[in-house]
Nucleic acid binder design. Structure first.
Lengths: 154, 154
DNA sequence: CAACTTCTGGACCTTTATGTCCATAATAGC
DNA sequence: GCTATTATGGACATAAAGGTCCAGAAGTTG
């Protein structure tokens, strides 16, 4: 559905949205269970896409560059793993495989629906809409690993 | 959206659905512009999934194992590149990252929508529903590469 | 300035997806 | 049985995604 990289980016952004102030790469990696070295690459991409602001030195780290309600899932996914659209039949120039058009029309429709759904969800919604109150009250630290959440079954 | 492999499998199946009798691997590869050697692997997967029947020797090749109206896009995609569902928060056992649940709920919803759309489209629909009559009348041979189809813009 | 923290960016490695090649097995026609 | 045809399956090659590591730049504190 989405790449591992996009999944990681989303986790990091959700975490940032829930956190007051800056979070260091190490902190984000620990909480979101993303490999630290790899996360740093992803954060760089998010910074280049102007979704987060980065600050070096003590007290530094990453913060959202905009309000959580102004950042959609689609923004995040596109920053690290751009959704590519089918613009013409992939069967070479003269489209001999023109007979495949109805097929690609379906695929295109499906991907546009996903895109639309992603565009409609903001970070703000994701952190507000907790279906299981216990879940959100879990402290945002690696230690919380010990805390079970029976409702987390999606 | 879907893997290259799934794209290739769909092209091959659409071609088979349009063709009377068996088509050899070479023929399918030429028309669908899929690398021959790679296509043979994919056809093997489709055969194992009982979506096509294979026959060796002269006059042999591949044929649909069921009627075109009984084969959905989802059947084909699942045969070569199974859609994996999110069943629980991917943040390890005790779901410390429980705060990500709303996120994964969205992702899960999106993938289920795609799955549903794919399940509803059959091969029969794909080959009937030609929005551009000219397209479907194009001969199903590599030579047709020379035939342009202006309506093929998806 | 010195020491410490944190991001940056490049080199490199591993795994997975994609793609190639060929010997072999099954089938049909003669 | 012989030959031509066609799928099968394994070995191998290449490309892309995912992941690791570390030197160095930029920032903070004292």
């Amino acid at each position: 559905m989405i790449s591992q990289t996009a999944e990681y980016a989303l986790r990091a952004m959700v975490f940032l949205a829930m956190k007051d102030g800056a979070a260091t790469g190490q902190e984000i990696a620990a909480v979101t269970l993303v490999p630290g070295g790899y996360l740093s690459k992803i954060m760089q991409q998010l910074a280049k896409a102007k979704l987060v602001h980065s600050q070096r030195g003590i007290g530094g780290g990453f913060t959202l560059a905009r309000q959580a309600k102004e950042i959609s899932i689609l923004d995040i996914v596109n920053a690290v793993d751009p959704i590519k659209h089918i613009r013409s039949c992939p069967l070479d120039i003269k489209s001999h495989g023109v007979n495949l058009c109805p097929l690609h029309a379906r695929l295109s429709t499906a991907s546009r629906q996903v895109e639309e759904a992603f565009a409609k969800s903001t970070l703000a919604e994701l952190i507000t809409e907790s279906r299981s109150p216990d879940c959100l009250s879990v402290p945002l630290t690696p230690r919380a690993l010990d805390t079970a959440c029976g409702d987390c079954s999606l």
